[in-house]
Every structure is written in C-alpha cells, then in structure tokens.
Design a protein around this nucleic acid. Structure first.
Lengths: 341, 341
DNA sequence: CAAATTAAAACAATCGTTTGCGCTTTGCCA
DNA sequence: TGGCAAAGCGCAAACGATTGTTTTAATTTG
C-alpha cells in the first residue's frame, strides 16, 4: 500500500546498474552509453521518478526557498508585494516561505530565527513599525543568508533596500493641495521610528517654505497607525484654533479612519476638509468619500525589484565568495494619482 | 571570512569526541557521562550550534513544512485565513509555503507539483473558482501528502474539507430581507462550477417557498466574480419588468461592484435597493453605503480548523500506516451580521 | 583475582544524490 | 602481439544528523 517513492537506488537495483551510472544517465552524462541511458530513462519515466528535493537541498546546501517577513498580509499593499516576490521566485524555480510579524518585534525575531533554521537561501523583509534594532537581520549575514529590505527599510547604510521615494510623491501631493488653494495642511505621520515620517515632514516643510507659506508645527502629528490613535490625531488637529483644510496621511488605512472621524464630526469631505494619502488602495474606488489623491507606491514593483536583487546576490555568492560589499539602495518613485470622482 | 556553520562534526573534532557522542550529549542521552555532556553543551552554545534542518528534513523524510494553495491573498478572506494557518503551524513548529493560483487552473497544477517536489508534509488548499478536476490534488495522496481543503472545496466525498455552512447564513439572510418587507429578491451567484452557488439557490428557493413567495428564476444570475460580469448581472436584473428590491450577492467584493453599479443607475442604496452578502469584510465599515448585512464566514476559524485536521492526519500517519479512511467534512456555521449604520 | 556487570564512548549504517577517481573492457595502431 | 587510449561503468566519499550495535574501560561481585 505504502507507495514508496522511487529512488536512484531502486532504478539501479532493477537494472543492475550502479547508482552513479543511473544518476549520470539521467543527467545525460557523456560517459554513459546510449543503450544504458535509454534503459535508465525509460524505467525512470515508468516509475515516475522524481529526484528527492530534500536530498538535493541537503547536498547542495541550498534550500531553493526564500523567506519573506512582513508585517501582515491583510494590507493590500503587502499582498500585492507578495505577488511581485512570488513571480520572481517562480522564474527562478524557488519557493516562498512566509511569516507575518504582525508588527510585533518579538514575533519578527522568532520568524527570523525560524527562517534561518529552515536554511532559506535568502530573505525579503519589510520591518515591523516599531523595529529599531536590526541585529536579528544583520546577524543572518554571518550565515550567508542575504537580506533585502523593501518598503519599510532600516535606516542603515550597509544593507540592501528598496523603498518608495516619498520625496517626489509628497512634493506632488503638497503642491497639488496648495494649487487647490489650501494653506493650512495637516500631516498625520506614523510612529516616530518610521523613517518615512521624517522624510515626509522635511519635504512638507521644504515645499511650504518655497511657496512662502508659514509653517505651523502643531499641524504635524504622529500616530501608531491604529484607528484609535488616528482619531486622537484628528481630534487634536480639528481642535486647533485654525484647523487644517487638508490633511496628508501616512497611508490609506489611516486616511480611512481619519475620514471616518471627520464625517462623524459633521465635516464635509472634499469640501470642509480634504485628504491626500499614500498607497492608492483599490478599495478607495468604492468609497463615497475617498481621499482626493493618493501617492501610488507600486508595491508589486518594489517587491519584485527587491527579489531580483536578492537573486542577483545569490548568483554572485555562487560565483565568487569575495563578496564586494556594494549595498543596493533603490528608490522607486512614488507618483501622485488624483482620484476622479 | 566565510563563516561556516558549526556542525556536530566540528564540535566532535574540537573536543576529540565522536559525532554520535556529541549528538547524544546534546539530546541528553543517558549513556553519556556528565562531564562530556557539559563540555559538549557548552561548546555548542559558544559556537552557536543549530542542527542543520535540511539534513534533518532529509533524514526524517519530513520537511516540517506545510504548503498552502489558495486563489489569492489580496482578498481579505484569504489573508485572514493565512493567519489561522500560520498560528497552528507555529504551534507545531512548522513553516508555511505559499502559492497563489490566481484562479488559474494551470498555475494551480504547477504549484501543486512544486509543493510535491518540495516534499511538503501536507497541503491546505482552497481551489480556484474554475477547478473541476482534482487529480493534481488527489494524486498527492500517493505520495503520502495529505490534503485538506477549506472554503472552496471540491464536491468529492473522499477528501478532507472544511467549509462554511452557507445554508444557515443564507436562510438567515433571506428571512432577514423578507422581514424587512422585500418580496423580489435577486441573487448574484459566482460561476456555475462553484458548489456554493447551488446551495445558495436551493436555500433561497426553499425559504421563499416556505414563506409562500413566488419564485422567479430570472432573479438568479451567475457571474465569474469580475466587476464587468457583476455589472452585466446588475444590468440584467435591473432591466427586469419587476426588478428586485434586494439582492443577495456571492461575496462582499461582488456586492461592492453591484452597489457601485446601482449608484451609477441613480438608485438609492438601502432604500430603492438593498444588498446582503457574504464575508463581512472589515472594509465595509468605511463605506457610506455598505451592504445591509453580511454572512460572516469566519475565515480564520475555517483555516485554523483545516490546519488542525492536517496535523491530526500527520500525527496519525506517523503512528499507524494503515490509515483508516474516514474523511473529515466539517461545516462552520455562517452567521448573519447586520451592519449598523 | 578472575569473571561478570555496567557505564561511557566509538563504530557504522542510513537517508538520496552527486561527482572525482579508478577499474575493466574494448578496439586501434604500430 | 604488445601497448595504449578511450569508452563505459562501478566504487566510494560527501553533505549532517540519528540510532542500533559494538567496543573499550572501569567497576563490582563471587
């Protein structure tokens, strides 16, 4: 009953050849006679022989698997990213191991360890929103497991990373709002740890300065991306003596919460107050009151690029072990997408 | 430079013990002396020794990995399901390999083959919306790879499966609509291949009959779940001499498209026409005009249950090879959730 | 004190595949 | 006919860990 999988040994036994001959025959090795090759290949086909990948992984010290660690899959940004990773992996005949940190640093560490133990050949990572220490990732380099970060990347020079260039998109977004006549523009950022927040703020200030608009720091608030925190931020902003007429939010999910709050506060969206955000979720198409515009961050492309870099690294590792340490730091230009109503 | 990972052999070499002694020492085997154990364990810790999983997978003929094949991750239903799978896998110290079929049968087959080659220990599957032939899954049983289906399950008796009981939820939904005064209730189903459609239709007709409401088959339409197809369905339904005042849609995504169409047709949602659907996506909370109610299908629980069954099968396989073929067929009761406005 | 018992560690096989090397057996040429 | 190369195949090691069996050494027992 127990349908044992056929092995080289089994084929060799039946044909009275040695295992090595069978192996070579199946690989079309020149030192094997034609008759032998034919016999072996035919029997292999009959028995439905498939090389045991576990054995190969073991022997080649390669798992033909890449690991992916990201905050979660329920955000469409990340589920689209996975597609980019899967597509590149498939081309390279690699499998994809997934772990979600759920924005929890401990889980992130655990997953990193599990991935290492599983001997993944490489890792694609988007860090949790609170990660400040990257030892659990940089440590992997000692195990010869290359790591490429995307989207949420560490603020370190000596890592490979692919991220959005928020600069361009942010600039476009703010200029767009100013062109629409807004002068009091609020900013809802993520946690302070997230590098993107500082960049956003800097660009914001730069544009306002250039346009000779007075900067009011009370218009810039941080959140931890939760709904509650966003509502607090909104409350704070709307309680200002001169509340903002437009708000730039760190991503679409936060925008949704912010819009919900504004509606509860009886504000007319896109009239009393406008929103511009990041990510450009398809779901916004279904909203009655979507953000005016969104900075598209091309998750698929980001993840794809990151994975391509990873495979380049794997390739390089194979060829020369003296790895020249030039760290890739790719920026994908965000693009403002204005939602038509 | 090349930081070779420590192996048993390395530890043995340094301590002048044999490999087997080292192995046993690390496993606290009684036949190893205390002094030796201490020495070995200390050096192991120093060198940061971790057993090579690839070698173990190979030797044990187990990959400690389960595969997951599902249509896509961008639907929140599935990304929540993944959480259920991951959680159970984590408890059992298993890794999760993911493949998306993107509702394409060929890709589904390819992924199934890749999973087999990767020697996953088991498989969790939600089939593509058009899959009618299940050979690429049933064939895996010969390789001793158990398969458990969830949500979108094959209509076969001899497989393990976990699915929603649409019956209860559908009954609740239609009774709810009737209680609201609706008499012309439309149904937008998925593709005919999907088993759930027939069940939905049957329940629909059953409830209507019991409530003595005349059944009009032109109120029931099939779609392939795309936006275009949904819009066509809506057009068809609204063009009826007596169009429906309420519509039951196969899932929330279809409901969103249908609602969008209705709004373009200048219908007032929840007044001229109501929608009830399946899945209960969190995103509906943000909609101005959400479906009146949704049948929650508990994706996390479904997937969790499926994974638990898979591990039971793996456990059973380990103990006795004469696998008694009682196939699990679990139904998770759907529950109507009425959205408060 | 020799024999029996036991503790502690080494030996060796095994999982499936690949691959460098060595061994036969041809056939060919001088 | 002796020598030699090439063709065709087998041997054995290797990857890292586990585990049944055997060996060695130490200790107890009669």
């Amino acid at each position: 009953m127990d349908n044992k999988l056929p092995t080289l040994k089994e084929i060799a036994r039946r044909l009275k050849f040695s295992v090595s001959t069978v192996s070579r025959a199946l690989h079309d090795h020149p030192s094997i006679g034609l008759r032998t090759k034919m016999q072996v290949q035919q029997l292999a086909k009959e028995l439905n022989y498939e090389p045991n990948q576990s054995a190969l992984f073991f022997k080649q010290q390669k798992s033909h698997t890449i690991g992916v660690i990201l905050p979660n899959l329920k955000e469409e940004f990340f589920s689209q990213a996975i597609n980019g990773i899967e597509d590149v992996a498939k081309i390279n005949k690699y499998s994809v191991l997934i772990g979600q940190s759920h924005d929890d640093i401990d889980q992130e560490k655990q997953i990193a360890i599990a991935m290492k133990n599983h001997r993944v050949d490489g890792l694609i990572v988007s860090i949790s929103k609170h990660t400040k220490n990257y030892d659990h990732f940089t440590g992997l380099l000692k195990y010869n497991i290359p790591v490429v970060f995307f989207d949420r990347v560490p603020d370190l020079p000596n890592v490979h990373k692919v991220a959005s260039n928020f600069n361009t998109g942010t600039r476009q977004a703010i200029e767009f709002l100013i062109a629409q006549g807004h002068r009091r523009i609020g900013v809802i950022n993520g946690p302070e740890e997230m590098k993107s927040g500082k960049e956003r703020t800097n660009t914001y200030m730069d544009v306002l300065q250039k346009k000779k608009i007075k900067i009011d720091l009370s218009l810039i608030v941080n959140t931890d991306l939760t709904k509650e925190s966003t509502w607090n931020a909104m409350q704070e902003l709307l309680a200002l003596k001169r509340p903002p007429t437009a708000i730039l939010t760190v991503n679409d999910y936060v925008a949704l919460d912010a819009i919900q709050y504004a509606r509860k506060a009886k504000l007319k969206i896109n009239k009393d107050i406008c929103f511009v955000s990041y990510a450009n979720l398809p779901i916004t198409n279904y909203l009655e009151f979507p953000p005016l515009a969104s900075v598209e961050q091309y998750p698929y492309e980001q993840a794809k690029k990151a994975t391509e870099i990873l495979f380049e690294l794997l390739e390089k590792e194979k060829n020369d072990d003296k790895k020249q340490t030039t760290f890739k730091n790719i920026l994908i230009e965000g693009q403002l997408v204005i939602h038509k109503k």
